[in-house]
Simulated scan of single mutants.
Amino acid sequence: MFRHSIRTLLVGVCALAVASQTGPALALAAPAGAPAQARAARAVGAQTLADLNTAMKGEAFAHASYNLYGTQADREGHPSAGRLFRSTARTELNEHLREAAALAGVVGTNAANLRQAVNGETYEHQVMYRGFAAQARQDGDMKAAELFTEIAADEGRHRDAFRTALTVVTTGHGTVPAPPQANEVAVPAGLPQVHAARTRANLDTAMHGEALAYAKYTLFAAHARQTGNTALARLWEGTAAVELHEHFAGEAVLAGLVRSTRENLRKAITGERAEATTVYPGFARQAAAAGDTAAASFFRGTAADEARHAAAFQAALNRLR
């Protein structure tokens, strides 16, 4: 999670809290008209809420990255390492991120979820990706400029679909748009295909955002199904697939995210240890000091899990030698 780029996680929280996203079957009861994040802000302190958002971004990124690392391990003939990466990815998404999302009040009504997504997609379409594309062109990273431009257009289409769905949900008239189809991108091991430090940083920010979008949209899809809106659930699920398998994957190729299994294990160990010894214990202390006892307990438990993950990855690395 934070393992790959703690700095970018912290930088990207504001950009992505706004952005559209989903994850598995987490359904939080939400009174009509009460935005979940606003209720969470009343339930926990501002710093705790910020730390929960940072945690979600890290867990989502770990889930997306570890699945790619698992595929690379399979390619190299290391099936046990592949299984370890994938099982850890499931824990990061289905346990850690979902628990943090519940504490942060991420999931609200279908209308509130759509408004959150519209805001995020609008920011990515109009500001973030267009800005990243312009900077990449200035720095001579034309592949990145082209990808950022394509994704900006996609996010505009996502925004428009969510706006239409919001009208359907709030008025009861019309049809929820059909889900988009992801053009899945394979991510082989390789070095970065960009040269500018600014482009690399922007790719990292973008990947964290797309990973979080996938996680949140999956959560929103589960809520839509639980409320009987299967058409909306399909829209969330299809958009989530685009964010992960097309956008995140395309950015991962340019960023050189995936390396050899040995390198991927070392990177995972470093990140898991940082979370276990520094990041989550620090969050727990801050939450406890603010009186946010449930969040403090979550952070402490997650720190313990990450220590176990680090040990498991270290054992897997030892077996490769």
Rank of each mutant, 00 (worst) to 15 (best):
A213T: 14
V168Q: 02
A55T: 11
I6V: 11
A144V: 08
P188N: 07
F220R: 11
G23N: 01
A312Q: 14
L147G: 06
K143T: 11
G301S: 10
A303V: 07
V253M: 04
L16Y: 15
A315P: 00
D74Q: 10
H245P: 07
G23F: 02
G209M: 01
A252F: 01
A304P: 06
S297W: 04
R266D: 12
P179Y: 05
T175R: 11
D292G: 01
H4S: 11
T230S: 15
H245W: 06
F283I: 03
N318A: 14
L257A: 14
A211H: 08
R234V: 03
A134T: 13
N119A: 15
R300A: 09
E210V: 01
A310H: 09
A40G: 15
R75F: 10
F299D: 05
F313K: 06
A196E: 10
A222Q: 04
L317I: 05
T109G: 05
M142G: 14
T164M: 01
F148G: 05
L84E: 05
R266H: 10
G256D: 06
E99I: 13
A182M: 02
E263I: 11
G190N: 08
R225A: 07
A310T: 04
H158S: 05
G291M: 00
A296T: 12
N119G: 12
E121M: 03
D74E: 12
V118P: 02
A304C: 08
A165Q: 00
A161V: 08
H158D: 05
A276V: 03
L166R: 00
D154K: 11
R159Y: 07
T261M: 01
G58M: 03
H78R: 13
V107L: 06
A165H: 04
T270D: 14
L26R: 09
Q314P: 00
T227F: 09
Y69H: 05
R321N: 15
D160H: 09
M1K: 03
T8M: 09
V185W: 01
A62P: 01
G82M: 04
A81F: 06
K57F: 15
Y217L: 11
P180S: 09
P31A: 13
Q126W: 11
P79W: 08
Q286W: 02
P35G: 04
T22N: 09
R321D: 14
R130S: 05
N113T: 07
A252P: 01
S297M: 04
A215D: 07
A17I: 09
Y217A: 05
H247M: 00
G291P: 00
V106L: 15
E150C: 05
A111L: 02
A55S: 14
L16H: 13
A55F: 14
R266F: 04
L52M: 05
E92N: 07
F61T: 13
A240T: 00
F299Q: 06
E237N: 06
A112P: 07
R273C: 03
T278V: 12
Q226W: 09
A296K: 03
A101Y: 01
V44M: 00
R42C: 05
A41I: 02
A81H: 02
G282E: 05
T122K: 10
K57N: 14
A310F: 10
A152Y: 11
T171D: 01
L97A: 14
G33S: 04
A222M: 08
L49H: 08
